[in-house]
Every structure is written in C-alpha cells, then in structure tokens.
Design a protein around this nucleic acid. Structure first.
Lengths: 192, 192, 192, 192
DNA sequence: AATGAATGAGCATTCATTCAT
DNA sequence: GATGAATGAATGCTCATTCAT
C-alpha cells in the first residue's frame, strides 16, 4: 500500500557500489559515497541493505552470479571437453574485460574479511556445472588426475592473470586470451 | 631527519604490522594496534614511517625482498632450465607455507590502492634473474613463445593457488607442490 | 484533523508505548518500536499523535488519570480523615504494584524534560479531591499546619518509596504497605 | 614523558557534563556538547572516558561522593540521635539547594538505565555511616522498627521533596527545611 | 628521540517525520 | 486513513597525525 520497495533502487545501489568501490577501493568508500552515486538518501541505502557488510556480501553474490551466467549461459553440453573448456574460458575472460569495474571489485572482495564463509559457499554453487565437466574429464583421462577444486582454482587464477594482461594491453588482448588458454590446457590435459 | 636511531624499532614495527594485519586485515588495523604490538608509543611509529601509507609501502617492499631472497638465494645458475624453474618454484611455495602471515599480508597488499606504482616497480626489480631465465629459455625454445611477464605472472598466480591449497590441506602439501609445478611446466614448456 | 477513526488504535499505541518504554527506557525507545508493538505502521502513529513528544505527554496524562481513578474511585467521603487517607494510600500502592509497567514509565516521565508544564498542571487536576481533604484536615487541626502541596508531595514520595520496596520484596509487601502509611500518618498528623 | 593526562580536564569534562545535562537532559546531550562546554576537542572526551556511558557512571559516582561528603563531613558522632539525623538532613538539603545542577542531574541518573548495578553499589558505600546510625537507633528503640534501608529510602525521598520545594520557593526555604525534618522524625521515631 | 595526550574530520547507523501509493 | 519507503540531520566513537613534555 505504501510506496513499494523499488527493485530499481536496489540495483542502483549495487551498481553505484561497483563504480565507487572500483574507483576508490572498498575501505575508502563510505556508504555515503555509494548512496550519493546511486542518487538516494544516505538512510535509504540501509532500507535495502541492513549494514555496509550486508551490502558488500550482496555485491559479491551478485557479481559471482553474473560471472556464472556469463560463463555458463549457452554452455555446449555436447561438445568435446576441450571445446567446452574453451567456451567457458572465452566467456569468462571476455566478461572480465567487458566488466572491468566488476572485476576490480571482485579482486578486492575475494580477499576481504567482510565476505562471510556462507556467502562464499553460496556464491560457488552456480559453478557446479563446470566442476562436473572437470570431474568427468578426469574420469575420462582427458584431464590429468588432480583434485577438481585445484584444477578449478588453476583455471581461475590463470584467467585472472590473463584478464589483467588483456586489460593492460588491449591490442594484444586476443593473443593473451589464446595464450592463457593454451597454458591452462597444456597444464591440465593429459598428453597421449 | 637523520637515519632513525634504532633499526630494531624499524624492524619491530614492520614485524608487528605483519602479525596484526595478517590477523585483522589492513583496513581494520589502526596504526595504534601496530605500535602497541611493536612495543613502541603511538607517535614513535611516525618517526620511522611518515604516514600509514608509507609504512604499508615499506612493508610491501620488505616482504617482496624476502620473497626474492627466498627464491633466488642459492639459485643453480648452471643447471638445466627445468631444474632452475623447479628450484625457484620449490623455494617460493615453501616460503609461502612457512611464512603464512607474510603471504596473507601480501594477498591483501597486492590489490590495495595504497601501494603505489613506484613501489610495485621497485619491488619487481629483485626478480630480474628469474625473468632473465625465462627470456633465455624462450630464445632457446625450451619455453613457448609467450611474453616474459605473462609467463612470470602465470607462475606467480599458479604458485599462489598452490600455496593456498598446501596451507589448507597440509597433509597433501607435497602433492600440491608437485602438481602445481607440473601444471606450470606443461603449460609453458615446449613439447619435445 | 477529525477525531481519529479508531479509538482502538489510539489505545493500542498508548498501551504499546507503556510496555516498550517500561522495558527499554524512554530514550531508548524509537517510535518504530512502539508502532510495531502496537501492530500499526510507523506512519500511523503520527496520525494519532503529532510528534513523539505529544505521544509522551498523552501517555503521562493517561497514566495520571488512571492513577487518580484508582485512588479516588469509591472514596469514602464520610469516613474519618485517617480512614480516608488510608483508603487513598492503599489504593495507590496497590495500583503501583499491580501496574508495574505504568509505574516504571511514570518514574521516567516524572523527571523528563519532554513533559511540559501544562501537561503537569492538567495531570494534577484530578487529584483535587485529595487536596481538599488535606486542606480541611489542616483546618481541623487533624493534620499539622504544612502547605497542602507539600503534604501531598510527601505522601506521593513516600508512596513511591513504599511501592518500590513492595515490588522488590513481594513477600513483605503487606508490611511495607502498613509501615509506609504509618510513617506518613505519624509524619503529618497532629498528636493527641 | 608525553603530556600527562590532566586532572583539570577530567574535572572540566565532568563539570561540563553536569551543566549541560542539567540544562538539556541526559538523552538530549550529545557528547559533543559536553566536550565543547569543557573546552576540549570531541575526541579528547574519550581519552578520559571510554564511552558516554562510562562518563555518565563516573558522573553518578562523583556526585554521590560529593553528597556523602557534604552529609558526613563533620558528623557529630557523639551527639544524640535526633541531632545526628538533623545534622545529616540539614547538610543534605543545603547541598541540594546549593548545587541545583548536580541535584537535577542526579534526579535523571537515579532512574537511568545507563547506570549499572555495580555503580549503584559502589556509590552507596560512603553512606554506610548513616545506615549504622539508623541500625543502632532501631536497636535502641529510638527509631521504630522498620527495615534500615526503608528508613533510609524514606529519608532520601522526603529530602528530595523538601529540596524541590525549597528551590521553588526560596523565601520559604527555611520553613520547608524544618517541616521536612519534622515529617521525617515524627514518621520514623518512637514516641516517648 | 620517545611518549601518549590532543585533535577534529570522518563514518556507519539511527530515527522522527514526511509523503507517495 | 493506512502503509512503510524515503529522507537527512544527528550521534557516539575511531583514528591518522601532531605536538607539548
């Protein structure tokens, strides 16, 4: 009956948080800067997020969700392993380059003490598909016999490194994208 | 203005900073907590480091220096490439596991806006030896033809991932150490 | 502007205010806590009471009205002075023990700057009957010749003290009730 | 070696708190108003008192201490009971009239949730002498046989009432002072 | 040089009140 | 009238830095 809570404002606050945090860093970003950038009053931020920490955790979940969507949307379920991995890789690094601010925010949140274990667990769920691919590929002996989460972590860290180089040298972006995948594939695939 | 009188205090402050920042996070660590842990007065910290940012940058340099020392001390200049790389790798991950607090601090400083570009540049210098190895190995066609700094970054990020897993599963540490190096080597070395 | 539609809500808000203020203290009670306890929306409170201060003043008046009602209902107009006073005393302390929350709220409002002088004056009116008894008793030389409002204040403060002890030691309640009245009567009555 | 913590400032802050709280009420008094009135920076208040609550508890203790000092300094240990009580009474009400601000603050703190039980206990200690007088007087049958703390509470509440009247009608102050004591004495003393 | 008290800008959060629905 | 989202001033407290001792 009263003004309903607006999804626009919720999103506006998250968007504003991304921009401001990417620019100034999490710890140097007062909530007032976020609300201002979002075009809402300082108090309004707290009707959508109970605390600054809650906002930051929501932000983490949201960006991870987007990442998963970017990586898994259109996943070629019936392609060969290498093509599947390549697909995920390409989507991922393209997302990282297209959404630099979001990537920079993730770089900070990843190591932040403000992100709870629960948030991390929940955020990891949407990536289960890729993990399944890894698991099956190991069983098939297509990939070498390493722990799945280790392979997954190698992929993530190589992708991040790759994205950094792509962002820094946009002209060579395509090369880095390819090189990064080669390192990953050669690193984890079984030779025969 | 003169060189600070006590190198002990200088070092004590840096050491204290490592412990406290590892435990509480950079942004949650007031300078007063550092000075207290170092056993000096709050004001004394500022006679050794002009500002908190200066302290943090000094910390970054110091830890990087130690890392380089750990990696390059005893470097087998006349061994084969693979052995050289393996040596560096082993030293690096062993350091990371032995010096967890320092590693955790580095994880935070790496992405911090408080670390200046100049600091990053200076900190990179001691690693020139490894870079030279990479450069020569590429010329020799032992390693694949990727930009040196990209190879270097891949190694660093894989090492970090490896160290995380080693720390989290100490029983499997040796396995991760070996697996990580395999991924790296297979990823960047030319076959045959 | 018209009389609020629902007397229920008006009363519900006052009742809620009593419970919440007794529990948490006036200054620690936000209007939102009151509206919530009353089962109405935050904004609704302000259609019944223009401001928080208005609500608090209304509360003061209401509780005082109840107190007067409790003390004066069934007043034995034709009994002896001592019996009249005893009647008032007994009603008063019984009310205080039965309505602990209201008494606690009064304890706070009594000294609050939020209660206006006008409110205090209006709230005092219903007690005129007792004052008349005092006046006549002094004229009769039954009570000693002190200013009426002073006697009245002595009675109020002794009653409050008595109620506090009754509440704290319920087993001895009857004793305190009697002792308190003895102190009062001996304190203000003329001997022989 | 550094600037020592100043007793002056400690006292200035407490004094300022008294003035401002008496004027505006506890809950309407920001710490900034207190520090300003004390002539110190906002942060300085917190080097002398850890929190606002700590300040308020210290204030309570300090005023109670002064009250006890005012009442018990020069206590006529060898006089008759009535003279002893009269002495305490006179000192007490005189103090209350002379130190109106402190009395007003006490009126507020007495019922405040911010004052801890421990504070109340500690603050009560200095009044042990009076309690002993009461106890002995009851044993002597000079005073009626009521619980000591009840007699004490009656005295306190009558004194407060008396002080209020003295403050409101300064011309009649002496009368109220005498009348109040009569009410007390007749209320609690055994006849003949 | 060492100390730690002094400073005051800055921040997350609350809350009485307003107002769009 | 009822609702609860929106508002933004206000507040207790922190903390990097300065400075008197």
């Amino acid at each position: 009956m009263a003004r309903p809570r607006s999804e626009d404002k919720h999103a506006a606050i998250l968007d504003a948080a991304i921009q401001v945090i990417a620019e100034r860093g999490l710890s140097a970003t007062p909530t007032s800067a976020i609300s201002k950038a979002a075009g809402v009053a300082e108090g309004t931020l707290f009707t959508y997020f109970k605390t600054k920490d809650a906002l930051v955790n929501a932000l983490y979940l949201e960006i991870k969700r987007e990442m998963a969507e970017a990586m898994m949307g259109g996943f070629p379920h019936h392609a060969a392993i290498r093509q599947q991995l390549q697909y995920v890789w390409d989507c991922f690094v393209r997302w990282g380059v297209a959404e630099q601010a979001k990537k920079q925010v993730m770089d900070q949140l990843k190591t932040s003490i403000h992100i709870t274990d629960e948030t991390r667990t929940v955020a990891a769920a949407p990536f289960a598909v890729v993990e399944r691919v890894f698991r099956e590929s190991i069983a098939n002996r297509v990939l070498r016999d390493y722990p799945v989460h280790f392979i997954w972590a190698c992929m993530a860290s190589l992708a991040e490194t790759t994205m950094d180089h792509m962002a820094r040298e946009p002209d060579a972006a395509a090369n880095y994208q390819r090189a990064g995948f080669e390192v990953l594939w050669n690193g984890i695939a079984n030779r025969d």
